[in-house]
Amino acid sequence: MEFDDRAPIYAQIMDLIKKWIATGELKVEQQLPSVRDLARQVVVNPNTVQKAYLELEREGYVATQRGMGTFVAGDYHTVDLLRQGLARDIVARYVAGMRSLGYGPEEIATMAAETARKETT
């Protein structure tokens, strides 16, 4: 797993799991991998994964059931919100990149639409 060591790892693991939830890779009420398994999978300290799970729980994305494991919390609506939030983050990064190259709002929108059309055909 490629993480950026210049930012906290637990936050990046949180983002990873949020992405899994948003894309449906992890469905609502589905169990998350155990802390140790995920730590082995992404090759990080298990305590870091543990911290990410705790933070996700505090934000309400997952819930831990004693002795059972950690499960995806919420419903269709929260997943959709999460997906929209992630989409906005990507758009924001894209727009910022385009702006730094000197493009205006119209051009940014057109180029995005063109690229999207090309990709789908």
């Binding site: 060591d5 210049r6 930012a7 906290p8 790892i9 637990y10």
Partner: peptide
């Protein structure tokens, strides 16, 4: 380690 990363915006190696 995580607090140092947050505080300095850098990896431990940096």
């Amino acid at each position: 380690a995580e607090k140092l990363r947050t505080r300095r915006g850098a990896s431990i190696e940096d």
